[in-house]
Each structure stands twice: as C-alpha cells, then as structure tokens.
Simulated scan of single mutants.
Amino acid sequence: MHRYIGTRIAHSAISMVGLVVLVFFLARLTGNPADIYLPVEASAEARAAFSAAHGFNDPLVVQFWHFLRDLLHLDFGMSLRQDRPVLDLILAAFPTTLLLAFFAMLFALIIAIVSGALAAQRPNGVLDRFVNVISLAGASLPNFWLAIVSVLVFAVWLRVLPTSGTGGFVYWILPVMVLSIRPCGLIAQIVRGSMISALSSAYVKTARAKGVARTTIVFVHALRNAMLPVITVAGDQATGMINGAVVIEVIFGLPGIGKLMIDSIQYRDFAMIQGGVILTAVAIFALNIMIDLSYALLDPRIRYN
C-alpha cells in the first residue's frame, strides 16, 4: 500500500512539474500587466518602474527561477490586484468551491444510485425508460445554459430563490442543483448498466432462492459489487466539478476559487493564476489517489502491492 501511494505521488509530481512550467509561461502570453494597472497616458518611465517593482523586466528564465525558488518555500507571491498574499486569498476562496463540489456530488450520487438501481430491476420497463430519458438529457445539457435557465425560471419568473450572491441555505440551492445535474445523469447510466449485470449474477440468484428481501439484494449485495465502475466515473466527475465550478461561481456570484481565477486572468494577476492552478491541481491529484484507494474498501480482492 505504501509503495503504491509513493508511486502515485511520484507520478503526480512529474505531472506537477509540467503543469508549473506551462502555467508560468502561458500566463505571460496574456500581455503586460502594466497595460491594465497603469493609465493609458502613463509615461515609459512609469511603466518601466512598475515592471521593475514587480520583477517583470527580468528575462523570463530569471523570473521562472525566482518563481521556483519561492514555490519551494510555499511562497506564491503577492496578488497584483488585491495586494495580498496569494496563499491567503486561495485558502479563503477554496472552501466555497469544495463545499459546492461536495454537496453537488453528494446530491448527484444519491439521486443517481437510487434511480439507477431501481431502473435496473426491470430493464426496458416504464421506470427504466423514464430514468434513461431524464439521465441522458441531464448528461447532455451544458452547465452554463442550465444555470441561466434556472435563474430565469426560479429567480426571475417564480421569485422563490435568489439570483446570486452568498448568504443562507437558499443561496446554495440553485448552484448545487445545476452543478449536480450533469454528473447525476452520467452516474445514473453507469449505475443502471452495472446493476443489470450484477442482478443477473449467480450469487443474486442464490440470494433470491434463499428468500432474501429484494431491497437487501438490490441495495446491499448487488449494489456493492456494482460500485467499482461507479466510483471511477464519480471520481472523474468530482475532479471535473472542481474545474467546472468556475462557470457556476461566476454566474451565481459565489466567492470561490473559480471566480477568483477568472478575475485574475482578466487582470493579468500572474501570481494569483499560478497559485490557483497549482493548488487546484494538488487537490485533484489527492482526490484521485483517494479514489483509487477506495477500490480496496469496496472489493476485498483488490490489493495494492
């Protein structure tokens, strides 16, 4: 187990090195920050002083070396736009994104597992066809369109939910529902397919012959054996949620890492862009490792040697 975790961390570290190089140089292709932070009529001396104060007049190789040196000390620099340490801003915004992704995934898993398991009991039945249509529609609709339509319907027409912002429980309803619809549709399809295969297995037939209750067969015996592909897809969707929350946070005005990154790109806040991408990648790498380790908990036959 420890060897497997060490190998996965090493592979993630290699990917991280490539990501660090890419995000540093690609961020600087967006242009010179002096064009945004200084007036249009600013003199050449003022622009040169601004670049010198923030290290932008050094060669890119030198800037990259300074960035790596500071990164090894967990120093992500200062935000140009807010004049605060990047790490403080990210740590303040990240909980919002994690909470949004967590509740959206939890809601999607509950609905998808229950609906997929019930639909698999009678393939091609009325419930199965209904679940198929709804799940395929949910998996096909883009998040930004769903977000705009949900605001129009529930906030503008019906006026039962707020359009955006932060506050109590009601402010989270629309973002969580919109973000969960797509993974719910995909996971429901996977649950249905896996459950159909599991319910036709020999051990299920034996359980039925012994008189085990249908609910126990479906949600205890068959569902556990059908969960491995579900965990794989759910893991991919969970990592995608952390990235996909950008659109939802911007539309609904949530102060998460996604909105922070969009604002940083618009204002060419290089340090903020670099820190946000790197820490998001670390969270995704850690989540992938935990998902792989969860396989052994679901299936005792799996061992990491």
Rank of each mutant, 00 (worst) to 15 (best):
residue 39 P to M: 00
residue 92 A to N: 13
residue 272 M to R: 02
residue 252 F to T: 03
residue 37 Y to E: 04
residue 238 A to R: 00
residue 217 I to Y: 01
residue 161 L to I: 03
residue 257 I to R: 07
residue 272 M to E: 11
residue 245 A to P: 02
residue 142 P to H: 04
residue 201 S to W: 00
residue 295 Y to D: 02
residue 135 S to R: 09
residue 302 I to V: 15
residue 50 F to T: 09
residue 213 A to V: 08
residue 209 A to M: 13
residue 132 N to R: 11
residue 35 D to M: 13
residue 171 Y to I: 01
residue 127 L to Q: 00
residue 268 R to K: 15
residue 79 S to L: 06
residue 220 V to T: 13
residue 98 L to A: 11
residue 69 R to K: 14
residue 86 V to F: 02
residue 198 A to Y: 07
residue 58 D to A: 12
residue 9 I to M: 09
residue 12 S to K: 08
residue 231 I to K: 09
residue 47 R to N: 11
residue 145 W to N: 00
residue 53 A to Y: 08
residue 239 T to H: 07
residue 149 V to Q: 03
residue 268 R to M: 12
residue 72 L to Y: 05
residue 246 V to I: 15
residue 118 L to S: 01
residue 176 V to W: 00
residue 11 H to G: 08
residue 141 L to S: 04
residue 273 I to C: 07
residue 86 V to C: 05
residue 208 R to S: 10
residue 212 V to G: 08
residue 236 D to E: 12
residue 281 A to M: 11
residue 211 G to H: 02
residue 269 D to Q: 11
residue 144 F to Q: 03
residue 125 G to H: 07
residue 296 A to P: 14
residue 56 F to M: 06
residue 19 L to C: 05
residue 93 A to I: 05
residue 33 P to G: 06
residue 207 A to R: 02
residue 50 F to I: 07
residue 242 I to P: 05
residue 51 S to F: 11
residue 86 V to A: 02
residue 39 P to S: 01
residue 121 Q to A: 10
residue 9 I to K: 08
residue 16 M to A: 01
residue 169 F to S: 02
residue 244 G to V: 08
residue 64 F to Q: 01
residue 273 I to N: 05
residue 6 G to M: 13
residue 139 A to L: 09
residue 148 I to N: 02
residue 102 F to T: 13
residue 165 G to H: 02
residue 139 A to F: 05
residue 241 M to S: 05
residue 21 V to N: 00
residue 139 A to R: 07
residue 229 P to H: 10
residue 62 V to S: 10
residue 195 M to D: 04
residue 8 R to C: 08
residue 46 A to F: 08
residue 82 Q to W: 12
residue 97 T to K: 04
residue 69 R to A: 14
residue 36 I to R: 09
residue 32 N to C: 06
residue 288 N to C: 12
residue 126 V to Q: 11
residue 198 A to K: 09
residue 183 P to C: 04
residue 210 K to T: 02
residue 2 H to G: 13
residue 13 A to L: 13
residue 61 V to P: 03
residue 59 P to H: 04
residue 282 V to I: 15
residue 285 F to V: 15
residue 204 V to C: 10
residue 211 G to A: 05
residue 60 L to D: 02
residue 216 T to I: 10
residue 171 Y to K: 01
residue 109 L to S: 03
residue 187 I to S: 03
residue 153 V to I: 15
residue 52 A to R: 10
residue 242 I to M: 12
residue 45 E to T: 13
residue 290 M to F: 15
residue 131 V to H: 06
residue 214 R to C: 05
residue 204 V to H: 07
residue 258 G to F: 09
residue 167 G to Y: 06
residue 210 K to S: 04
residue 41 E to P: 06
residue 245 A to I: 09
residue 295 Y to C: 06
residue 179 L to C: 04
residue 169 F to G: 01
residue 254 L to K: 15
residue 302 I to T: 09
residue 233 V to E: 02
residue 209 A to C: 06
residue 288 N to D: 13
residue 191 V to E: 02
residue 16 M to G: 03
residue 278 I to W: 04
residue 76 F to E: 05
residue 57 N to H: 12
residue 75 D to F: 04
residue 95 P to G: 09
residue 256 G to N: 08
residue 26 L to Q: 06
residue 277 V to S: 00
residue 31 G to A: 02
residue 30 T to S: 13
residue 134 I to N: 01
residue 128 D to K: 07
residue 195 M to R: 03
residue 36 I to T: 12
residue 71 L to D: 03
